[in-house]
């Protein structure tokens, strides 16, 4: 099993390199640094000097791959590719356009993101599983039918509606919680309640429906018939037999997103003014701060690959068939 995990780890390396190459191509090859400078400086005030200064400030004035003017290792290291892409591998993200260190920003901003994302993830999982179990228990009845109708309706509603509707109703009309903002420590709770509820509500539709299909698939298996033939009650069958098998796809499907929780939620954070990584990305996109976007792309990929690794690991934990291989 250790060999298996090691192999998965090694497999991650070429993928990260691939991600790196893609982002590099996207940011520096499709458009030259000149184009970016022109855009950032605005079309009117562009002078060659201003462009050069803009590039020099960001370190974009170097050659892309090979620095013919430098000697020795610097021929390769004193280039945009090395400075901007290879350095990502040691999590050296450099500075944002506003001069702040991106790595430092990420470290401070990930906490508010987690404070929002973890409750949404855990409560969402619990709510969806419970709801789906209920639908599976009442399968082929009107409760199930209308439950599915509610799910389909809920998943047809835009996330933006949940946020805007929630803000309007709860914050504006009823004034129960502040519309937006954030405070560190325990005070964060009053700012987080609404985003968490909105986040959970937005996921119920698709989540419950998906879990319901998994449950129903398991319920139709032969071992469930065996369990019933033993004289077990329907609830025992559902909880001891069906749930335990269904949890394998559900848990492993959930595990893959755990690392990406760090990335926060783009929309929710920016709507509710939570200073997490999600709103950081949005701000960077709107300010066209390529350094930040590039760093976040790389960080996101690292976390996703970590999620894949965790998924493989979690299979070995929950599924005896994999564990004993």
């Amino acid at each position: 099993m250790i060999a298996y995990i090691t192999r998965r780890f090694l497999y991650a390396i070429p993928i990260l390199i691939g991600v790196n190459v893609i982002t590099f191509a996207l940011f520096f090859v499709v458009n030259t640094p000149e184009d970016m400078a022109n855009l950032a400086l605005g079309a009117k005030r562009v002078t060659p000097e201003a462009v050069e200064r803009w590039k020099a400030e960001r370190g974009y004035d170097k050659p892309l791959f090979v620095n013919a003017e430098a000697d020795g290792a610097a021929r390769l290291t004193d280039t945009i590719f090395f400075q901007k892409s290879i350095r990502l591998f040691v999590f050296d993200f450099g500075n944002a356009d506003d001069g702040r260190n991106i790595g430092h920003e990420i470290r401070t901003r990930m906490w508010p993101s987690l404070a929002l994302a973890i409750p949404v993830f855990l409560i969402g999982l619990a709510v969806n599983i419970t709801f789906a179990l209920m639908l599976a228990f009442f399968r082929a009845t009107y409760i199930d039918f209308w439950g599915v109708v509610v799910c389909v309706a809920m998943m047809s509603i835009s996330t933006l509606f949940y946020i805007i509707g929630g803000q309007y109703l709860v914050s504006k009309t009823w004034s129960l919680v502040p519309i937006s903002g954030y405070a560190p420590g325990i005070d964060a709770a009053k700012f987080l309640i609404l985003p968490v509820v909105v986040g959970v509500a937005g996921g119920i539709g698709s989540g419950s429906r998906w879990y319901r299909t998994i449950f129903l698939e398991e319920i139709n298996r032969d071992y469930v018939r065996t369990a019933r033939a033993k004289g077990l009650s329907e609830l025992t069958v559902l909880f001891r037999h069906v749930l335990k098998n269904a949890m394998i796809p559900i848990l492993t499907g959930a595990v893959v997103v755990i690392p990406t929780l760090f990335m926060g939620s783009l929309i929710t954070e920016s709507f509710f003014g939570i200073p997490g990584l999600g709103s950081y990305v949005i701000d960077a996109i709107q300010a066209q701060d390529f350094a930040v976007v590039r760093s976040m792309v790389f960080l996101g990929s690292v976390l996703y690959i970590l999620g894949l690794l965790l998924t493989d690991l979690s299979y070995t934990l929950v599924d005896p068939r994999v564990r004993f291989e």
Binding site: D222, T226, V318
Partner: peptide, 27 residues
């Protein structure tokens, strides 16, 4: 149904064609 559950397993037991799928894989 509750009384029938006492019958199943205690008075009437069953075995099926596919032993491979008739046992719960995770217990």
């Amino acid at each position: 149904e509750a009384a029938m559950r006492n019958v199943r397993g205690e008075r009437i037991a069953m075995i099926f064609q596919e032993p491979a799928t008739s046992l719960n894989p995770v217990l």
